[in-house]
Amino acid sequence: MNELIFFFNYVVVAGSVTGSIYAIGAIGVTLIYSILRFAHFAHADMMTLGAFIALLLTMAFPHAGDVVGLPTAIVMLPLSMALTSLAAVGIDRVCYQPLRAQGVRPIVMVIASLGVALMLQGAIRLFAGTGAQSLYVEARKAIFRIELPGVARPIVVTEPQLILFVLTVVAVVGLQLFLTRTRMGKAMRAMSDNPDLARACGINTRVIITLTWLIAGSLAAMAGTLLSLDVAFKPDLSFFLLLPIFAAAIVGGVGNPWGAIAGGFLVGFAETLAVFNWAVLLRPLQAMLPAWLELPNNLALVGTEYKIVVPFFILIAVLVWRPTGLFKGKVI
């Protein structure tokens, strides 16, 4: 039983946390892809930017959260989302819009987004230094331990993780309602289906593009802030996010928001399952196994240092067997 709780803490909880983060990030990537038709490599750095803004705001008003009983960073989250999405629109106007106007190939936009990624990374590191900083500036992280009867180990969930689960559900439901119920959302879907037809129908593509950046930017800020709230703020956060997010978006089928969510959880759980030491679960069964079969101490599929291999492997597998993604994206 202890082993099962251990499994729950280290796989179910941890997998859901990383899965939610990857899912929110992948939604942004997939939205940008379906509207603007290029892979936005600066997305992970936009997440870092959102977290950094939240960190700055938290440092400026460390006690703002006490009033409502939430971490300050959560109270500052709407503001950080707004600022990040404005930054996203600004970046689009300055860096991507002129290139779009020149009608360059999508791959050139990809290179430009790599340039933007470097700029964001450089600017954040310039101001934040290179070390890790906690988003709990003058407070402590609340940790909930749920004791089960007859078990020595408690189930451990932290406050940011609970908030993350709630906000992920809110964001996903909200996005779904927006895309299916509102005029703007429908216009967005129309444009992702067929940009020329959408323009001919009188949809203002400029507005839709701005809207896409607003949504993608705010989602990125949300994921980045919640991740750094759970772990810590690091300027090189994007380094660990970029490949999983793209793997998630491609696994789910590029241009398909629900696919991105599924892909995010798939990649998140695959990562945690791959680095989990299965020997822990199998050890109680050692007595039942024949004597010649001795379990090694370490039965993890890959060491933690090779975690990055997991999303890459998933990516390769999908590209080889189903380049359209598991849920049939629109564009390959």
């Binding site: 002129p98 050139v108 933007v116 470097l118 590191r125 310039l126």
Partner: peptide, 29 residues
């Protein structure tokens, strides 16, 4: 008053490389 000036100065180069990429693509493709 930022600490470790050396490493920060090197980070500025990250920014400049990114800026160069974006500028060249836009003005001298």
């Amino acid at each position: 008053q930022p600490g470790n000036l050396d490493s920060r100065a090197l980070q500025a180069r990250v920014f400049v490389i990114g800026l160069l990429i974006v500028t060249v693509l836009r003005f001298a493709p």
